[in-house]
Design a protein around this nucleic acid. Structure first.
Length: 419
RNA sequence: GUGGCCAUAGCUCAAUCGGCAGAGCAUCUGGUUGUGGCCCAGAAGGUUGCGGGUUCAAGCCCCACUGGCCACCCCA
């Protein structure tokens, strides 16, 4: 026996209505905002992610699927979308396009992590990026994409977690303040948190360790250390969110695991899907394109986990519309009817009517039973009598009414009834 | 990477003290000529996750592995 690799899953036909529903809404909402679709490769040079996401982050240090191809190139299955999209922006000179460049992608993401509810080694994201504009209204637009999408999918009571991580001007001071604050309680922190303190003190804000939790209430707030520009940016964004009645909570503990964020960071949490509740997360990254060798270009974006969205839709009892299925079945009786039946289904399909063919030399009883289970509306029975008369016996599976219909008129007959 | 719980038919689950591996659902067939859903009958479906060990005897006890769920970590 072979099994799907750990942390991966098959998306079976039974789950497809959810996927179709969710991804169709993603394309539709993207269109409402003037986002254009971009698809970048599933693997990139490993160095792109190391530079982009940042050394010292968990994603780069522990979670990347990196391999060497036959040409000796170090490649990595993408652990996130942004770095690849930035690479494409630079490579194709998109800075000469009208700014901001507004892009979205849908596709798989790979991270080597321990699987858990809502966490997989291969998962799918809806990713949005707006590049080349510093206006806080762009932050609002990006958040509005997530807001509009989740609302259309049926979410109620949505709220953003919002924070500002500052910029290269003001972050060092905040970082220093955290080091001083937590440094004073060094003896109360455990090994994990002490390491955080040394490497990336901002991560302490996200700590679940009991001792650190107890200290968090008194910890300095990033909002007190923002430079004028960052503070104004956050204040303006908040005023826009208020004006549009998009609830948000300032969460000064919200820090994100990717190093490239500046200023705005945000998440949306869903209830009832376990500890991995962030259904959407993103933020601004005004230095990233420069870091990757492009012209200085601000940007902001988010990723939304499709599996988690579907998980929470199910948890909320939101049903996707059913997928369309054929409503006509052709049931030949006996060998003589076989070829005419093959010809008939082809005619129906050529006319745009989805139709199933009953296989095998099954009894009519078995064929009707199969039609019933497939949700067929009309079964076209083709037996000796019908062949002789140049007709089919059209059976309405709901009313049980049957009618002999001339073969040449069957397409029109069905069209009138199938709406 | 760490910890807890778990693994029996396609699915959901039984199996007494360690003593012949079962049910429901689903699938297929039949209930007399070419008519479905309900009902009835039958069939098929298992190396009890994999590999060892203990025992006269292991689904059950022990060890290791793999995988799943949940939590940590981290994130979508």
């Amino acid at each position: 026996m072979f099994y799907a690799p750990r942390g991966t899953q098959d998306i079976l036909p039974a789950d497809r209505p959810y996927w179709r529903y969710v991804t169709e809404q993603m394309h539709a909402v993207a269109a409402l905002f003037g986002l254009q679709q971009i698809d970048t490769p599933i693997f990139e040079e490993a160095a792109l992610f190391v530079r982009g996401v940042g050394e010292g982050t968990d994603i780069v240090d522990k979670e990347m699927y990196t391999f060497q191809d036959k040409g000796g190139n170090e490649l990595t299955l993408r652990p996130e979308f942004t770095a690849g999209v930035m690479r494409a922006y630079i490579e194709h000179g998109m800075h000469v396009l009208p700014q901001p460049v507004k892009l979205y992608s849908i596709g798989p993401i790979f991270r080597y992590e321990r699987p858990q509810a809502g966490r997989y080694r291969q998962h799918h994201q809806f990713n949005v990026e707006m590049l080349g504009e510093l206006d806080p209204a762009v932050d609002l637009e990006v958040m509005s994409v997530a807001w509009t999408l989740l609302t259309r999918l049926g979410y109620r009571g949505l709220s953003f977690q919002l924070n500002s991580t500052g910029c290269p001007v003001c972050r060092p001071a905040y970082r220093q303040a955290l080091i001083e604050y937590f440094g004073a309680y060094r003896n109360r922190l455990n090994e994990v948190d002490l390491r955080r303190l040394a490497i990336n003190p901002l991560r302490l804000l996200d700590s679940k360790e009991e001792a650190a939790q107890a200290l968090l209430d008194g910890a300095p707030h990033s909002s007190d250390y923002l430079c004028d520009e960052c503070a104004a940016h956050l204040a303006t964004l908040r005023s826009y969110l208020d004006a549009l009645e998009m609830p948000h909570t300032i969460n000064f503990r919200l820090v994100r695991g990717l190093d490239y964020y500046t200023k705005t960071v945000f998440e949306v949490w869903a209830e009832g899907i376990g500890a991995q509740a962030a259904v959407c997360g993103g933020g601004r990254y005004d230095k990233l394109i420069e870091m990757l060798g492009g012209p200085p270009t601000p940007g902001i974006g988010f990723g939304m986990g499709i599996e988690r969205v579907i998980l929470s839709l199910k948890q909320q009892g939101i049903q996707p519309p059913p997928l369309p299925a054929p409503r006509v079945q052709v049931s030949p009786l006996g060998e003589a009817a076989r070829v005419p039946a093959l010809q008939l289904v082809r005619r129906l399909r050529n006319a745009g009517i989805a139709a199933l063919l009953a296989f095998g030399n099954r009894s009519l009883k078995a064929q009707l039973k199969a039609a019933d289970r497939a949700g067929i509306a009309y079964t076209l029975i083709l037996g000796e009598q019908e062949l002789a008369a140049g007709a089919v016996l059209a059976r309405d599976m709901v009313s049980h009414a049957q009618e002999a219909v001339a073969l040449e008129g069957i397409v029109e007959w069905l069209r009138r009834r199938l709406t």
